[in-house]
Amino acid sequence: MTGGITSPDAGWRQADRGPATQQKTGKKRRKRGGGRGRGEVAMVDDVEFTSYYGRQIVKTPVWKSPDVPLYLFLGGAAGSSAILGALADFTDRPTLTKVSRLTAGGGSILSVVFLIHDLGRPSRFLHMLRVFKLTSPLSVGTYILAPFSAAAGATAAVELLGWFPRLKRFGGAVAALFGGPLATYTGVLLANTAVPSWHAAHTQLPFVFGGSAMAAGGGITMMFTPVDEAGPSRKMAVAGAAIELAAMHKVENDHGIESEPYHEGRPGKFMQAAKACTAVGAGLTVVAGRTRAGAIASGTLLAAGSLLTRFGVFEAGIASTKDPKYVVIPQRERLAAQQNEHSSTITR
């Protein structure tokens, strides 16, 4: 009859196997089965599960693409550039300071535009400032983004105009203070949802986004800074790329069936392209980052890798809401595990 972990009781099953209610999860077949550990998927056994006519259980987020992935990318690049800019300012690297501040300012203003555009009622953006709620990452994020974009935007503006050098330093420092949280809170923003593939990776996404932010910020500032001054950019970009790849590897492999959307379809392609761009970009930075052409090429690759990571993670989460198996199977396994635990304590 209905095997697997979710057999309906007493033998009841969908009449005449109604439309796609009893589904089997396909076993993942990977061509590179014997390859290195990277990219290898934890095998998910065939399990039958029940659903209501195959319909999704959780709602698909109404967040728009490309607004939200672009917001994630720009916010990250701006945040890491702001940190770099403030530190470069304190250690007297004028060109790197200027480039970082312009990146941070431009990125933050654009990210605000994308964030507001994504609202269902953009004219009510200021309602975000009615309350402050630690339980709402979007509320916390608003209070990170608002001072950050004000400080970074103003700093970039006076940098362009060449006014108030001291105010510039202060503005840059304020932006740097909020830069880190701005780049990593977005991981919490996605993870604090019922979206299976985001929530499963809730402790890893902030590190993915933090690393990705440094790869992007380092890459972009490296492109526009003379190579002999861009040493910090290169170092930050390579370290960020390594962190991004390592954290993303865990996201993609640690969560059983909830990791599956990161490997399949469009999000899977995004993730593969992201990994290729980031890895090649980081390698090229090490090898040829000290040449003008090398810096431009590797900087572009790193920024593209970061952008693709955001799109991949975003779309993987979207995909995980559309199939009820990503909701039912992990929850069933959780229940089964609790039951086992419970029965084992009873026997003891």
């Binding site: 880190g180 780049a183 991981g187 949802t193 402790t203 902030p206 590190f207 933090g210 170092k235 370290a239």
Partner: peptide, 28 residues
Amino acid sequence: VTTRDLPAMWKAAGKAAAMMVGVAVTAI
């Protein structure tokens, strides 16, 4: 409820933000 895991998420985000500053300082 997703918020059950929020403290762990904020902790991770804090660590990741500190990591970014650490990497940037080291790079400089």
